[in-house]
Amino acid sequence: MDINVKQVRKNAFRVTKTRGITASRIRIPGGHLDADLLPVIQRIAQEYGDGSIHLTVRQGVEIPGIRYEDMPQVNQLLQPLIDRMGINQEEPGTGYSSAGTRNISACIGNRVCPYGCYDTTAFAQRIEKAIFPHDLHFKIALTGCPNDCAKVRLHDFGIIGMTLPQYEKDRCVDCRACVKACAKKSVDALRTVNYKVERNHEKCIGCGECVINCPTRAWTRSQEQYYRLVLFGRTGKRNPRLAVDFIKWVDEESILKIIKNTYAYVQAHIDPNAPGGKEHIGYIVDRTGVQEYLKWALQDVNLPDCAEVSSPLYWSGLHY
């Protein structure tokens, strides 16, 4: 059997432990899928795989038990999934054009969850559109609110939804529901002064508990969506660590630009001898220094006036 495993991998198939057998990895940006596409996955699994599927940790689907020689047929069958999810592709019918940049995962977001501050899937799809296909190993995750159910701090880019609470004091009746909720469920950023509420903007994490708990609509959400962007969390062998805060109250456009800038930075700085061409961004930043990274990352980024950039950035975590 003669297989170019590098091409196999780039085509989003896995080189498995079983000789002759591969697995197809389906991207589902934002983790939301039209149910009528499930039969496509089912058919591939039943006709070319072993009849099972695996739900991946990044919200994709992996279909195991596929013979390498069936990859072209599988790629043909994948086309409706690729089309419907708007995955950028070099040539129709050839499957995924790349696999380095991983599926962009997201919690269920505000399509369903009451805490969600934005449509996580839509933003994930927008990022996917902007960066895929790419061979660089990037992990991006989005979560709807600071509860961080998507555990985005384990990713290279973690995007945490925020709302900037708007307070209409003439609708406030001093029921204190917001103050209590903020103290018990969030960061205790609210104080009652003269029977009205004062928000400590420095402390506020934009979770929206005040809005959710307000019975009179004295608290509402900002029309603008804001995010907290956190950088370079990772698990893995040498130095597992949580992502650190980079920008608070940042907007969607800036996040997209920063991610794209980071691709350019990695291309310029990645170790040319990295095994498999894979070097984790965080280790590159460790090597070049944060200042060099920031120079690239913030190039031509127009942050909103309210954005707060953390400095210096410092990661800790475990060192083995």
Binding site: N110, P114, G116, C117, Y118, D119, T163, G208, V211, I212, C214, R217, T220, R221, Q223
Partner: peptide, 12 residues
């Protein structure tokens, strides 16, 4: 009031 309700992107 677009998006003016308790949950995000829900009108009041």
């Amino acid at each position: 009031y677009p998006g003016g309700n308790t949950f995000s992107e829900v009108d009041c």
